[in-house]
Each structure stands twice: as C-alpha cells, then as structure tokens.
Design a protein around this nucleic acid. Structure first.
Lengths: 143, 143
DNA sequence: CCGAATTGTAATTTTAAAAATTACATCTAA
DNA sequence: TTAGATGTAATTTTTAAAATTACAATTCGG
C-alpha cells in the first residue's frame, strides 16, 4: 500500500482547522465539501486522529480542534495514526517465493534487512515535516 | 501506488542471476518458479531492466546476465526502471479539493512542496542500497 | 425533555489498480 | 526446420481503496 490519499486529506483538514477553526464550525460535512471526499471518510480520519491525540472531536456537536501545537504534529504521526503499519506496507514483497530454491528460502529475510534501512530513513524524513511547516508554506503561498 | 512487489521480484531475480547465472540457464520459466509468479511478469520486469541497462537478455535463447557490476545497481535504479514515477506516486493526493475554498485552491501546491522533501530523502535512501549489499546479506544469511 | 444537527461505525457497493492468464509473433541455435 | 526461448498486446481475475448507505449515539438550544 502506498501512503494513501487519507494522509493528504488529513493534512488538508488539519490546516483548515488551524486556519479557520475559530471562525467556522468545522464539521465533517464542511470538510467533505472542502476536500472533495465524503463525510464518512472525514469522520473515519478524524476518529484515527483523535485516538492518536492529534485532534479533539466533540461528539454530537461539530467543531473539531487541534489537540496539540502544530509543531508537534509531524507527517509521521499523521500517517501512522491513519495506518499503523504504513512503513511496513510501503514496499511490497512477493508472497510465494519457492521453498525449493535457496534464494526463495532466504529472500524475505534478505529483503527485510535491506528494506529496514529504507523504512528507518523514511520514518526520519516523515518526522522532519510538521503541520507548522505546512501552515508556513500555506501562508507563503497566500502571500 | 506503493513500491509494488515487482521491485522485490526484480531483486530476487538479479540475486539469482548473480549467484547461479553461470551454472543455470536463467529463463523466465525458471525464475517464475523461483519467485512464485508467472513467466510473463518476469519477462515484463526483464524488459524494463534491459532498457535501463541493468540486465542483458538475449532474445530467443535464455540466460539473462547482469549488464553491470552489482555495486552499480541500486534499489533506486531498479525501482525507477520498473516504474519511472515511483516517487511521485508514492504519496497519494486527493483529486478533487474544492476550488471554492482557499485551502482547497492551494492544498496541492502546499503538499507538493512538503512531499518533495520526502521524495528527495527517499531517493537518497534508495540509492544507498545496492545489489552488492544484498548479495553480501544473502551470503551472511547462508552462513 | 424534544428534536435538529452532528458524530461513530458497521456493512455494502463501486471503482481503480495490481497481477495473472491467454495468445501469438519473433528470435536463436542445434 | 523445429524446439525452446523472448516480446508484447489484450483480457480476465484478484485485491485494495474509496464511496455510499444505514442507523445508533451524542449534544444542545428551546
């Protein structure tokens, strides 16, 4: 699985809430309109962000708001909130190498070793970008 | 799109050819057996590796062999041979943000800016692992 | 306390992407 | 010339992502 569009939708919503959360009641309906996806998708994303301590979502009434400063919300936190094993699933393994072949028997162990390095680098990279950076970029863009 | 299983299958095949290419005629049929996928998939992967200057595939007769030293074949070269825009497709963008919303209008530009950093880091990481490393790991694993 | 507006979530359907299969033309060397 | 390969297009199957439907639970103004 790639890093799905959910991550981009989540960033979109968090940015929206950060910028306009005080002047608009940020409901799943409103954010569905803004992102162009459906309200159930938004609620499912919010549910995951809530569990991860990123977002406060008052049930019943609308008006989600950030649970912590934007500088503490990295892309890594967002991605793993939405899909805990995102890095493991990022690079696909062929599921049925032959046990009759010496390469087939050890390929998964060998690849895991190589991919582990890629995953560690990717984690570091995803940690290095925060919602704060994205907010700054949005402001520059609005210039 | 994630980095598909094609990349893992390609590494499997290249490792096989590097280790046993001189004592076995490495046909698409044989590698299909070893990897557990079908011969057409192998031929399609070989076709891409051939165009990228990684593999020599004599048409008609079997017996593919490496076109350059294992130390020059990085995971990045393999991945991009198989799917040129692999990094661009790695993180999904939601396709229809609303043009009526200020966030909706600029979200793609803002995300592209953030994701570009992730992609650059990922490229560097994928470049840092070569078939030579994987061959070494295979030998360690064999004891 | 009622009811409109909202969140929470399970179940289902639709859509899109990955992989396998089929088919057949082309190439090579014995 | 023929058996055993590769090359590739077209189709089908399988799997994963996303949308939709449905409805229970929550909140708060009146």
């Amino acid at each position: 699985m790639r890093i799905s569009t959910k991550c981009s939708i989540a960033v979109h919503c968090l940015l929206f809430i950060n910028e306009y959360g005080n002047i608009k009641k940020t409901t799943s309906e409103l954010l569905a309109l803004s992102t162009g996806c459906n309200p159930v998708m938004i609620r499912s994303i919010f549910s995951a962000l809530k569990k991860a301590g990123i977002l406060i979502v008052p049930p019943g009434t609308g008006g989600a708001r950030l649970a912590c400063p934007a500088s503490e919300i990295s892309l890594y936190r967002i991605c793993t909130a939405l899909e805990p094993n995102v890095l493991e699933k990022m690079i696909g393994l062929h599921p049925f190498p032959s046990a009759l072949c010496p390469i087939g028997r050890s390929i998964h162990a060998v690849l895991d070793n190589a991919y582990e390095k890629i995953r560690a680098d990717m984690q570091k990279s995803l940690r290095s970008v925060t919602l704060e950076d994205i907010v700054r970029q949005y402001h520059n863009n609005q210039g």
